[in-house]
Design a protein around this nucleic acid. Structure first.
Lengths: 130, 130
DNA sequence: ATCAACTTACGAAGCGTATCGTAAATTTGG
DNA sequence: CCAAATTTACGATACGCTTCGTAAGTTGAT
């Protein structure tokens, strides 16, 4: 049962979720300050977005105190998976491999990161042989 | 100079672009028939979308004939890069590696594909040592 | 030449996102 | 305690995406 239909966050909502995922919990002001580092927006805009996210169930908030405290209600990994999956379909003909290749080819990775990827690759190969 | 600001296709537009990228050129009807395989929509809806895409410069069309023929005006790779880049920023804290790991971990790849990825990885490693 | 089928053009409507102004409530510093 | 600052709530607006109805133009078969 369930269904519990997945809500796809909008672009702005993802920006806010990023902050919340990093901080764990935060007030509107904290999130807003963080957003200002990259973009500009009015305080009430951020507030409104977070209120809407609350209605949607993307975040939960503690309003027992004056300055409400928000935290994410959706996991970072699940959200990444959903959007990634969607993207693989509509932009890479359903091939995750194609996406990986594009990502590897055009966005530099450090030696350490390459090693990390190598490990995962080795694991996957090992699984094949079972 | 240029600027030539990049136009980000919407979700529906991407679906249409996918068809055009695959076929090279196509009429509205051909695109529409293709779309019907996955979703349902009215013919005029597809038509309107393609007209808008034409205005935006996402596609070009030959209207010297009665049944207009469309073709993509943006490359698949460039489009993938743009969207991928955006996604890496807003969803993976700017880390392409993180995206690759998620993609590898959750969407199965065939042995052949793993090999393909391995090759790219080897190339990148080789570059490091220069 | 005429009718049916097909195609394009145009405009309107519904909906969601993003933005912000303003007012009300609450907290805090002096 | 009062004024200033902070925070929330509410509503309005603008804009873009998506969808579709309807009209007008074109083609093809009889």
């Amino acid at each position: 049962m369930s269904g519990a239909k997945y809500i796809r966050p909008t672009e702005s909502e993802l920006e806010i979720l990023q902050v919340l995922w990093a901080k764990g919990t935060a007030s509107v002001r904290e999130v807003h300050e963080e957003l200002l580092k990259t973009k500009e927006a009015g305080y009430t805009t951020t507030l409104k977005l977070m209120q809407i996210m609350n209605e949607k169930g993307l975040v939960v908030r503690d309003d027992s105190i004056k300055t409400h405290i928000y935290q994410p209600a959706v996991s970072r990994e699940k959200t990444q998976q959903h959007i990634l999956g969607k993207m693989i379909n509509t932009l890479f003909s359903g091939s995750a491999t194609e996406l990986v290749i594009q990502a590897l080819g055009n966005h530099q990775a450090s030696p350490g990161e390459l090693e990390e990827i190598q490990k995962i690759l080795d694991q996957l190969k090992a699984q094949e042989e079972k």
